[in-house]
Design a binder for these strands. Sequence first.
DNA 1: CCGCCTCTATCACAGCTGTGATAATCTCGG
DNA 2: CCGAGATTATCACAGCTGTGATAGAGGCGG
Lengths: 198, 198
Amino acid sequence: MPNSTDGRDTARLRILDAVFRLVERNGVAEASLRKVAAESGINIGSVRHYFGSHEALMAAAATEIGARMDRRADPASMRPVRPGDTAGRRALLQQVADSVLPAEPEGGTELLVLGEFVAAARIRPEFRPLAERMGRDLRALVRDALRLAGVPDTEVQTEHFVGLLIGLSFELVYPHGSTGSPAPRDVVRHHIAALVPG
Amino acid sequence: MPNSTDGRDTARLRILDAVFRLVERNGVAEASLRKVAAESGINIGSVRHYFGSHEALMAAAATEIGARMDRRADPASMRPVRPGDTAGRRALLQQVADSVLPAEPEGGTELLVLGEFVAAARIRPEFRPLAERMGRDLRALVRDALRLAGVPDTEVQTEHFVGLLIGLSFELVYPHGSTGSPAPRDVVRHHIAALVPG
DNA sequence: CCGCCTCTATCACAGCTGTGATAATCTCGG
DNA sequence: CCGAGATTATCACAGCTGTGATAGAGGCGG
């Protein structure tokens, strides 16, 4: 298996990372095969060899982003909390919010690429599985956390919390006229404080 | 001023409407000069004559969408409400939400195109004035309504309300795994009920 | 050593894009 | 009626896109 440095998977990852950089920098429409090849330093012939077609490359990128988002939000890490433990109940919900909203620009890239892909899913079918899975997973995560935290009206509160998280994410990814104060994190904290009264 | 049916402004409007239809159907990247010409039934030479360049056409489309959104949300129509009038205070906030969230698919087109443009503004500078203006106007509208309704903590509540509206709009425009129940309108009503306790 | 498979590398092609340039056509005011 | 300006209509060009096709290079097992 001839490969300059490592194996097949490493090359694939280098290519996908190039896709993410291009999407972050210039949007999903600019991640063409030739530009991905140039950005990754891998010949376009090899890129095509690994992924078959441009659509398949995008589908693979979508799958990879989905996997990275999963790694950020682990449902199994949630522990039950005593009803009297106000701080603990709030921390549980804050943890869910933090797994979506990026703390540092590091995680902002993943959220940005995810946003671009979900938006592109309206038109391009190869992104649709990612979009639907992300929506379902986020809802399930929020719903579980709300139940564990003992918040009533779970159904409507789930949509409320999810809507707020998506809206704040959109404002982070696509800045438009926000002054930055109060910060998204403070807004979430405020919402959680209303959900779990002290 | 030779024009088959009407004047210059009518032709411009026909072209812009064709842009909106194409953006709704295939995304902002697919609104090319040739496709806009075909969709509007106006020769590409005329389209270029009216708008000069593709970028200028998009800028004009952005301005037009901004004007239509302004028509939907009129700040002057808000009337002060008596502190004791719970229903009136809630109606005031509901009115703001309704001016953003589309009731019928009719208004959904405008919101969809606006979403595409604001998202595109991250990359394309011709959409940036629209994006920033929409963000500022929405914040001002929500802030005024919250003040009129006597809701405390105006700053953080504004960001909260705006975030929720944007998130729900995103889910309407880019569907991803939502079951549709509870409906966005019910989520907003729930939020307003918490804001203005009965 | 040799055959086989993976990977790398190029070429060519059709199709799309925005745009510069140019000319024909139309409509109205004088 | 006729000239001027607005509008419509085509070409051509360079640049980009994905992809089919083909061939060379590299390493590994037999």
